[in-house]
């Protein structure tokens, strides 16, 4: 079989996460690992709007890319946000 993918979306107010993963991957892990760290961070900022996230993209990139390696070995993750 050709290798198959699926995409999981998560919307938190103005933030849209689109995460692709391999066919055999675990959806719960993907969703929790990929987006929760960013959402928790923006909640700490007290504002989950897109504007706030973009203004603090440096901090998001730091937490997000750390999370990327946190999940690397299981997820073979491809991700993009915004």
């Amino acid at each position: 079989w050709p290798y198959a993918y699926f995409v999981i979306y998560k919307f938190v107010q103005e933030l849209h996460f689109c995460i692709t993963a391999g066919d055999g991957d675990n959806e719960v892990i993907i969703l929790q690992g990929s987006s929760d760290s960013v959402v928790q961070f923006t909640v700490l900022l007290g504002d989950v709007e897109k504007t706030a996230a973009l203004k603090n993209l440096d901090m998001i990139l730091l937490s997000y890319m750390v999370g990327k390696y946190f999940l690397w070995s299981m997820l073979r993750l491809h991700h993009r946000f915004f």
Binding site: F6, I8, N26, E27, V28, L31
Partner: peptide, 9 residues
């Protein structure tokens, strides 16, 4: 939804 999706898949 993610659990429903994972289960039905």
């Amino acid at each position: 939804p993610v659990l429903r999706f994972a289960a039905v898949r």
